[in-house]
């Protein structure tokens, strides 16, 4: 399988590998899996004032899956939560020049960031609104 230079770059020098404290209410955690290949991906975001200030991932899978999640963590830092929710797998696949057989890796990364945002939002909804009283 010929990987694009960008995939190889992210695979060899993955950005933002690691974990955030998942019990922190400002942290959203998304864990997704690709049933067809058995890859698993954990993507976490830290949100302050509606902006993603940090993102970490751990992906156990092929080079394209690692590159897709690495790229997403790079993209979302500094993004508003609602803008990050708009990320489409096609943008990831295009940026990394993923071949058709690896498109599902970009789908996994899109699912992971969306799952992380939803987890963050549900934590905020469950939390009494004493921290962000303005809204």
């Amino acid at each position: 399988m010929a990987y694009s230079d960008k995939v190889i770059d992210h695979y060899e020098n993955p950005r933002n590998v690691g974990s955030l404290d998942k019990s922190d209410d400002n942290v959203g955690t998304g864990i997704v899996g690709a049933p067809a290949c058995g890859d698993v991906m954990k993507l976490q975001i830290r949100v302050e004032d509606g902006v993603i200030t940090d993102a970490k991932f751990k992906t156990y899978g092929c080079g394209s899956a690692i590159a897709s999640s690495s790229l997403v963590t790079e993209w979302v830092k500094g993004m508003k939560v609602e803008d990050a929710m708009e990320i489409q797998n096609s943008q990831i696949a295009e940026e990394l020049s993923l071949p058709p057989v690896k498109i599902h890796c970009s789908v996994l990364a899109e699912d992971a960031i969306k799952a992380a945002i939803r987890d963050y939002q549900s934590r905020q909804a469950a939390e009494p609104a004493d921290e962000e009283g303005a809204r």
Binding site: G33, P35, V40, K58, Y60
Partner: peptide, 14 residues
């Protein structure tokens, strides 16, 4: 396609 596994299973796998 391949059935999706539960969130608990994926957490365990990670």
């Amino acid at each position: 396609g391949a059935p999706h596994m539960s969130q608990a299973f994926l957490v365990e796998m990670i």
